[in-house]
Computed example of a mutant assay.
Amino acid sequence: MEHHRAPPPGRPLPVLAGHSDVVISVAFSGDGRLLASGSYDRSARLWDTGDVRHPALRAVLTGHNAAINAVTFAPGGRNVVTGGDDRTARLWQTDPGRAVTEACATSAPAIRRSEWARYFPGLDYRPPCEGVSSK
């Protein structure tokens, strides 16, 4: 088990900026390496807090139509759940790479060259899931 050293007492921690409105819910993952925040701005954010002196924004989660007033991590920390005033609960992957892999593995059919030309005229054909492994 990896242990994380807390900063010395009395030293301020960095401010995690980014939400455009009040933050009303926060939760740490079980291992303390991720922090989720939910806000009146209708977004949730995932922060990598492995280095408490230099936390990094990992993802901005959007999709709620109203304030997010609850965030929590599922056991194991691979998913975060958000609940909003829009009366929905959403389940999110905490690893964006894994989310892309799963989305590509379940989407079918892949966009064909003719569809690409129709919807993206003038752009070179580059299917979004090309080269993504479906482990």
Rank of each mutant, 00 (worst) to 15 (best):
S37M: 04
M1E: 11
A99D: 01
V60Y: 04
L46C: 09
P121E: 10
D86R: 02
D41L: 02
G18E: 03
R126C: 10
D51R: 15
A67E: 08
T94H: 05
G30R: 09
H54T: 15
L35G: 00
S29T: 00
V15F: 06
D85L: 14
S37K: 06
R90Y: 07
S29F: 00
V71T: 09
A105Y: 00
D31I: 14
N65E: 15
V60C: 06
R98C: 00
T82F: 01
S107Y: 09
D124C: 04
G10F: 11
A74I: 06
L57S: 01
E102R: 15
R58T: 15
V60T: 15
M1H: 14
L35K: 00
G32S: 07
T62I: 13
P9D: 08
P14S: 02
P127Y: 09
I24P: 02
D86I: 00
L46G: 03
N79C: 04
V23G: 04
K135P: 14
L46A: 05
G10S: 12
Y125V: 06
V80R: 04
V81G: 05
A67M: 07
R45H: 01
A56H: 14
A105G: 01
A105Q: 09
A56M: 13
L16D: 06
L13E: 14
G32P: 09
V132Y: 10
V23D: 02
L35I: 03
T62H: 12
R87H: 15
S29C: 01
H19I: 11
V52R: 15
A117Q: 15
R53Y: 13
R53H: 14
